[in-house]
């Protein structure tokens, strides 16, 4: 029982971080109509910004976090403005290819700036807490990560459902030309989407940096899991991305934890899910086809 609890917890923590990244991807797909391959790199940008401000400069967590969100947001918006806006009405393949290039470019810049080695935000282990009368071990970072992720997901869902900009985004995603007739600009929609996605990715980056460590390719690893979550849930669907992310996280944890597959194949699980879904149900669990943002 303890094993199951701990494995579920591990999976849920990982799933929450995957979800934060997958949400950005799904929003960008919903509004922009393309897969943003460099989205995982924004996780790395967030993690490195936080490490620099918090660890190197010694800033307290809150200002460091604010700076991290600011820097990452700037990078995200810049990417949108410089690379994706000019390509907006082009075939979806073109921004996809550009984003692959961007992913490589951002990794290379991190590599130049910080080297290829593993870096950490906190030296030593986080203090751990025994929950459920000792049946489960969790670290405060994990708990904060889980709670924050859940709040952000709820916030996003309410934003899309109840606020004017949220409704606007959904309008644009379901019919871009019709929306523009009502004065909803696709430009500002894309800015919103990139902004939201980037902030979520930056938060994931900070938690990932605490939970594991920092390396230039960290965005690729989480990015792949987020892609798998997206395909699993349904590309463009908000609940789909969240459910997909938790399934990937928990599946990985249970399959390896119970020895169903050898641990050396852990990293292959998202790929297997991705391939299986594309073969069996390409539209995803929540989808009928690749389509607009559903909330």
């Amino acid at each position: 029982m303890d094993l199951l609890l701990q494995l579920l917890w591990n999976g849920i923590v990982t799933g929450s971080l995957i979800a934060l990244v997958a949400l950005g991807l799904t929003l960008i797909y919903g509004v922009g109509g393309f897969l943003q391959f460099a989205h995982g790199e924004l996780v790395a940008v967030g993690a490195y910004s936080f490490m620099v401000s918090h660890k190197y400069w010694g800033w307290p967590v809150v200002p460091a976090l604010l700076l991290t969100l600011g820097v990452t947001l700037l990078v995200g918006l810049l990417i949108e403005r410089v690379f994706f806006r000019p390509l907006r009405d082009r075939d979806a393949l073109i921004p996809l290819v550009v984003s692959i290039g961007l992913s490589i470019g951002i990794q290379a810049l991190i590599l130049i700036g910080f080297g290829a080695g593993i870096l950490t935000i906190s030296d030593g282990a986080a203090p751990n807490m025994a929950l459920l009368s000792g049946h489960l071990l969790a670290t405060p970072v994990q708990i904060i990560a889980l709670v924050t992720s859940l709040l952000l997901m709820l916030g996003l869902q309410s934003f899309l459902t109840y606020t004017r900009p949220g409704k606007m985004l959904r309008a644009v995603s379901s019919n871009r030309s019709l929306a523009s007739m009502f004065g909803l600009s696709a430009d500002s929609a894309m800015r919103w989407i990139f902004g939201i996605g980037t902030v979520l990715a930056a938060v994931a980056g900070v938690f990932l940096g605490y939970e594991q460590n920092l390396e230039p390719t960290m965005g690729v690893q989480i990015g792949i899991m987020a892609f798998a979550a997206l395909i699993l849930g349904a590309v463009g669907s908000v609940p789909g991305a969240i459910v997909g992310a938790y399934i990937i996280g928990i599946l990985q944890s249970l399959l390896v934890g119970y020895g169903v597959i050898p641990s050396g194949f852990t990293a292959a699980i998202p790929f297997v899910v991705l391939i299986l879904m594309l073969l069996v149900k390409p539209a995803g669990l929540f989808g009928t086809r690749f389509t607009a943002i559903r909330h």
């Binding site: 701990q6 923590v13 390896v256």
Partner: peptide, 20 residues
């Protein structure tokens, strides 16, 4: 024996498994 790739950095599940 539990193995991991050089690119991996999340060992939580393997550790839980070993612990049990």
């Amino acid at each position: 024996e539990e193995t991991f790739l050089s690119t991996e950095s999340d060992f939580k599940t393997r550790i839980t498994k070993i612990k049990n």
